[in-house]
Design a protein around this nucleic acid. Structure first.
Length: 560
RNA sequence: GCCCUCGUAGCUCAGCUGGAUAGAGCGCCGGACUUCUAAUCCGAUGGUCGCAGGUUCGAGUCCUGCCGGGGGCGCCA
């Protein structure tokens, strides 16, 4: 009996009570009935607060309503006992047999266990990182890489059609400055004052010249462009390598340049695209500039799209890019932005509204807090400009892909994070990722040993779910049954850290089960149905741990 | 000044979108391996959930105000 089945049974009971005239529900049977695992022992296997929520509408004292529901619920197959507690909670105890069946279902479903259809049919574009191609990816980007990727995976598990997109700001002043910086480095000249200063600039310069020794001899105008383009290509390639190393995949690398028709701003595709928005009635010309009246939709000021000097603003590109995404058929455009960009949210939403869309459904901006990194008690500055930074590669080398991904995935993106370099580097046994992975490795070991013994998990008619009656088995079964709901809510709320927390919880429950319940026969003990049933439970646990880790992009090792 | 965000154990943080006696890890103290991986488990310690009001059967969670940390407010990118 899964929480979903229990939920269905509960709704059926409520509807039957209404049909019989035993109760009246002015607002009908609620669609969101909560069935949850009680925190407290002694509160049954599952608990629900429906009676408390419906009491007022039904005009009954909560405990009276609870009693009515309890009587009928108790008669449902698979439910052993229902008890009214406290102000009107229903504490439900499930029959061991009904509960144990989950293990067989999980093993049969395999890698698809946890997949639901709650977001079926939604076409979602999720854009994250979108770093300028003017330097290596660093710690700041690392968090978005992990969180964005994990959100995408979780959304897919919930049935959505997801496209992961990386927007390349390969156009404009910063690119020119970047090119000029590399060029200066190559020519042995001082880097421009507001240029890029890091050591990596000199590395890039050396690489560019190595690949094309004649580049320094080009006429100045050509040389500027050649350096910019070569440095851009090299830097973008490096970012892609960094992300590949970090197990983060993008479906679309979207170049800002492709939005523009030509170098001439006012004749560009963006300008043409923007003109289409004029029909919506929110564009106006003033002081020689083209504006979007975002204040029509709650923004605190109107925004310039084309400056009076004819140059496009970044916001113009952002607008055209959004329209482009919508034209590509995405129902929902998710943006992952750092807290330092949260001022954009209002204008992005207003922009979507100005484009004739619903800012509540078509555009969604997730704000993530920045990661701080301490070394020897001091915060490292992560500015590319300053040239001091911890790159993604360095972090991966220092900490490892799995611990790094997991550490960043286990916190909500909107909570500020302070990580200490010493803490992170010394993390070996202390890291929660190992706790979860270890549970998986331990299970894998048992399954290997079982094979050596010629013992197979119970299946089909041979599996008697009623054998799994130990308290630790019950707790584990209920935890495993919870997984699809956890994934679905992680997707709905865009909070993949719930998966990580769930895995830690479940791994702990497994470790305690392991401590109390012997799985394999000891010595020359004859293998029994209980051994085989437990083997199935263990296999189901491994499936859940492996599926959960996969959603976070973390490996599930067979041995540790 | 206006807006956003955060404030929970000594430290780092959860808290299932309002539920029952607020949790975990680390740290500290004490236990458990001749049988499936001790990267584990068991016990102990630890809290005016920033402060004050409000909403209701019930608030760490929602509303208002205040205090404190971080961030954002350009015809910049």
């Amino acid at each position: 009996m899964t929480p979903e089945q229990l939920y269905t049974a509960l709704v059926d009971v409520l509807e039957a009570l209404v049909a019989d005239g035993a109760i009246t529900l002015p607002d009908g049977v609620p669609t969101e009935v909560t069935v949850e695992r009680p925190r407290q022992k002694g509160h049954g296997d599952y608990a629900t607060n429906v009676a408390l929520q419906l009491a007022k509408g039904a005009g009954l004292p909560p405990r009276d309503l609870a009693t009515l529901v309890a009587q009928r619920l108790e008669a449902v197959g698979g439910i052993e006992a229902v008890e009214v507690a406290g102000p009107g909670f229903l504490n439900i105890t499930v029959e061991a047999g009904a509960q144990g069946q989950v293990a067989a279902d999980i093993v049969a479903t395999g890698a698809a266990y946890g997949v639901t259809d709650t977001l079926h049919g939604e076409r979602i574009n999720i854009e994250f990182i979108s770093a300028n191609p003017t330097g290596p990816l660093h710690l700041g980007h690392t968090r978005w890489a992990v969180v964005g990727d994990a959100i995408a995976r979780v959304l897919e598990a919930a049935g959505a059609d997801v496209t992961r997109e990386f927007y390349i700001n390969d156009r404009g002043t910063q690119m020119d400055l970047f090119g000029a910086s590399v060029e200066a480095a190559a020519l042995g000249q001082p880097i421009p004052a507001d240029g890029y200063q890091g050591a990596y600039i000199h590395d890039l310069a050396a690489r560019v010249v190595d690949a094309d020794p004649g580049i320094t001899a080009l006429p100045e105008g050509e040389r500027h462009v050649a350096f910019r383009e070569a440095a851009y290509a090299a830097q973008l390639a490096e970012q892609r390598e960094q992300l590949a190393l970090f197990q983060t995949h993008f479906d679309v690398w979207f170049s800002e340049r492709t939005l523009h028709g030509s170098e001439d701003d006012t004749q560009s595709g963006v300008a043409a695209q923007l003109e289409k928005l004029r029909d919506q009635g929110h564009l106006f010309d003033e002081d020689g500039a083209l504006w979007m009246r975002t204040t029509d939709f709650g923004d605190d000021k109107d925004r310039v799209l084309i400056r009076s000097n004819g140059h496009l603003t970044y916001f113009a590109s952002d607008t055209a890019y959004y329209v482009n995404k919508r034209q590509r058929g995405f129902d929902r455009c998710i943006y992952l932005l750092g807290a330092d960009h949260h001022g954009y949210v209002g204008r992005l939403k207003a922009m979507a509204a100005c484009a004739g869309d619903d800012p509540e459904s078509h555009i969604e901006v997730l704000i993530g807090q920045l990661v701080k990194i301490l070394k020897d008690g001091e915060e490292l500055r992560l500015s590319k400009r300053a040239g001091t930074m911890v790159t993604l590669d360095e972090l991966v080398e220092l900490i490892g892909v799995d611990p790094l991904r997991y550490t960043l995935a286990r916190y909500p993106a909107d909570s500020p994070l302070t990580l200490d370099v010493a803490e992170m580097t010394k993390q070996s046994a202390d890291n929660p990722v190992f706790y979860v992975q270890y549970a998986h490795a331990r299970i894998s070991s048992i399954l290997r040993n079982a094979v050596a013994l010629g013992l197979e998990p119970a299946k089909g008619e041979d599996f008697d779910p009623g054998l799994l009656t130990h308290e630790k088995e019950g707790v584990l079964l209920r935890a495993l049954a919870e997984f699809p709901r956890v994934v679905a809510s992680a997707a709905e709320l865009r909070e993949p850290h719930r998966v990580a927390r769930y895995l830690e919880d479940t791994a702990g429950i497994y470790h305690r089960f392991y401590d109390n319940c012997r799985v394999l026969p000891m010595g020359d003990e004859e293998p029994s149905d209980l051994h085989r049933a437990r083997l199935l439970l263990v296999a189901a646990t491994r499936t859940v741990l492996a599926n959960g880790l996969a959603l976070l992009g973390v490996s599930a090792p067979e041995r540790m």
